[in-house]
Design a protein around this nucleic acid. Structure first.
Lengths: 230, 230
DNA sequence: ATCTAACATATGTGATACCATTTGTGAACT
DNA sequence: AGTTCACAAATGGTATCACATATGTTAGAT
């Protein structure tokens, strides 16, 4: 067999002067983040290069970056794979995600403006649409955009890279969860987050952020990992 | 002039089958972490390659990784540099460091054993030695090893990469701080951390961890950034 | 002397070639 | 039929080369 396990890596709008390495990085990152690539998938430099129409050189650089972000695992054989999820790792990832996002939300609040709240409101509306259409990929992207936009109003924000690294590590597994636990996406606490923002209420914002994570991925994911299926 | 600004990149013990890319990554990472490379230093692929006796290819991969860890900045010109520190970014980095390390300490405590406490005690003793010898590089390395060992007793630990990314971003600036603020290194709260560990006291551990960071780098760094000099 | 234009140098990016190691396959043997 | 060994294919790692862009320098004009 030539190349590796076939993987579905969506294309992405490429800027004019974006380098090959960057486009590979962006495509792979996005694919992993929305869970297009299953845990355990084996990857090869040449396989990815062929799939993207590039030489192994830029692919290698992109893969190395994602390895440093803990999105791609490099085995002792020097082979590459998307890591499998374990219950222990899952609990730690969720706990870290809560800590990081509560922290980021808290430090974003002082910089929040009514304009941003309005934009967040619009994003939330679009999420409701995506939910009706059962467009899960879009829902994931919008959800991440919602959180990212909030944390990024802090002009000196430095926690987004760490947060996105956690998203990357949860992405492939989350797709598995969604397939098994139907009601997963019905739950979000975005309305509560928005209320807390409008009231400029730190405590409420932190509680809402934590609930949004714990009642979403956390509960469903744990069921999949313990019961085998939800 | 050929190459870039000359930088001092200490060698590192290289394993047998360690690849060139890995050795470049490890050397650069270590150099940045202990502050050997000043903020604002311009780096070039070929310059680093020459300095390490390798071709640009493996250097590119290592640099890309460190870019993803926010240790090396890539400017729109596609030039690379160690980022300068600003007061706003510094405050955010310290706050993130406190959040992350308190979190990691809290989640490590349940797995702590007397053997580990003893090892930590020995590390702390070696730090006292290094302090007497005024060996600052050694002190930095031992300090990081102390914290890392504590957080890593959690077998499912996933926060070390984020924590080390913050260390990487503070490293170059910390060196500048040490040069200006003499008493910087006299302060650490490791004895309190050890007491809290022995008592298995979560609250005390979290307070000690936060104090260790705030009364160390935080206070001194802020002075350098506001007064210009401490 | 200062500014500008042309040239030379340096640099990032990516494809290709070569090597060492690993993986996969199939034939020979028990 | 199962095991083992040898050979073929694939893969990761790195150096080198070619190209486009960016940077630095020098010569000429004002």
């Amino acid at each position: 067999m030539t190349g590796s396990t076939i993987v579905n890596i969506p294309e992405l709008p490429a800027d004019e002067d974006t380098t090959g390495q960057e486009s590979v990085y962006a495509r792979l990152r996005h694919a992993i983040m929305i869970g297009t690539i299953e845990p355990g998938t084996n990857l090869t430099m040449r396989g990815l290069a062929d799939a993207m129409g590039l030489s192994p050189t830029p692919v290698r650089e992109a893969v190395r970056r994602l390895n440093s972000e803990n999105a791609i695992e490099i085995l002792p054989n020097r082979r590459m794979a998307i890591p499998e999820m374990t219950l222990g790792r899952f609990e730690e990832l969720v706990a870290l995600r809560v800590t990081l996002e509560v922290h980021a939300a808290e430090r974003a609040l002082p910089y929040i403006s009514d304009i941003v709240i309005e934009k967040l409101q619009m994003l939330d509306d679009r999420m409701d649409e995506a939910l009706r259409d059962e467009n899960l990929d879009k829902l994931t992207v919008l959800n991440q955009r919602f959180h990212r936009m909030l944390y990024c109003v802090n002009p000196n924000q430095v926690s987004i890279p760490a947060i996105e690294s956690v998203w990357l590590q949860l992405g492939p597994f989350q797709r598995q969860v969604v397939k098994r636990v139907k009601e997963f996406y019905k739950i979000d606490r975005h309305k509560e987050i928005l209320s807390a923002l409008q009231a400029r209420d730190v405590a409420a914002l932190m509680i809402a952020t934590e609930s949004d994570i714990r009642e979403g991925i956390s509960r469903s994911g744990r069921r999949v990992l313990t019961d085998g299926i939800g």
